[in-house]
């Protein structure tokens, strides 16, 4: 079984913000990390590999620095990595991103399962997985928490919805987007770290993927960001201090005035 895992390098969101005074994006101290949900996808693939014969390839579309993210995945036990990098990919929305990733999976040829994180924590769209599956004409399941390989040609999965849990059977090839419950990511091992360091990672561009430049990047995107701003701050903040009984009275009064239900 060949598993492709799509990972995205993202800025560590806790440090991304807009300076309230200058209205500019603060980039100081913003590190790049692997999107947390994609580490769960890597872990899910490794779990399948623990139990069956599987080869895992990680893919990322990003600038040349995204190479780091791929080596991190290799150091956790993933077999191969491919970097999709080309100036022409700049400005991709989810449509263009998934077109590009789908082309890479197609080029790999023999992929049985594609794993993605539930969503990337920067864009937060959760659209890339489903859109990519559509372009690959694969069935898919989102919010997957458990994966069982039935035989060579089908998977049984559990997915978490707002209403509960659903158990589905999907034929391979298929695509899954996973959530935290698939398992805590394992740590890099020394042996794999050595291998990751030495690995040569192929870089595929527009031409390698057989895509037309007008179908990728900004030209292949249909959505456009027209304005970026910081969320309105809460101006109504009240700090309640003092003796407990007074605090209780105050909070109770405030909540009554705010007409919150339940009281």
């Amino acid at each position: 079984m060949h598993i492709a895992v799509c990972i995205k390098q993202v800025p560590d969101t806790k440090n991304v913000r807009i300076d309230p005074d200058t209205h500019t994006l603060v980039r100081q101290g913003v590190e790049s990390i692997i999107n947390p949900f994609d580490l769960f996808a890597v872990e899910a693939a490794l779990k399948i590999k623990d139990e069956t014969q599987a080869t895992i390839t990680v893919l990322t579309m990003g600038p040349p620095q995204a190479d780091e993210a791929l080596r991190d995945a290799l150091s956790r036990g993933v077999d191969d990595a491919v970097l999709l990098s080309d100036r022409a990919f700049a400005g991709s929305d989810t449509w263009a991103t998934s077109t590009t990733l789908a082309a890479a999976v197609r080029k790999m040829g023999d992929v049985d399962v594609v794993l993605c994180g539930k969503q990337a924590v920067d864009g937060d769209t959760a659209q890339v997985g489903p859109e990519m599956a559509t372009f690959l004409d694969m069935p898919y399941a989102t919010f997957v928490k458990k994966i069982e390989v039935l035989d060579g040609s089908a998977l049984k999965i559990s997915r978490q919805t707002d209403e509960g849990v659903e158990i589905w059977k999907l034929p391979t090839p298929c695509l899954l987007t996973v959530i935290k419950e698939v398992g805590e990511p394992r740590l890099p091992s020394l042996r794999h770290k050595m291998r990751a360091k030495k690995a040569t990672i192929p870089v595929w561009g527009v031409a390698d993927l057989g895509l037309a430049p007008e179908n990728v990047g900004l030209s292949g995107s249909f959505t456009q960001v027209v304005r970026v701003f910081s969320p309105p701050r809460r101006t109504d903040r009240v700090l309640i201090q003092g003796p407990i009984e007074e605090q209780v009275e105050q909070l109770f009064r405030h909540l009554k005035e705010s007409k919150v239900p339940g009281l």
């Binding site: 959505t223 456009q224 701003f229 969320p231």
Partner: peptide
């Protein structure tokens, strides 16, 4: 919509489709 974990808001349009 919020992006970057809600630290930033972005206004998005789809002009041609």
């Amino acid at each position: 919509r919020p992006a970057f974990g809600g630290n930033i808001m972005a206004t998005i349009v789809c002009p041609n489709r």
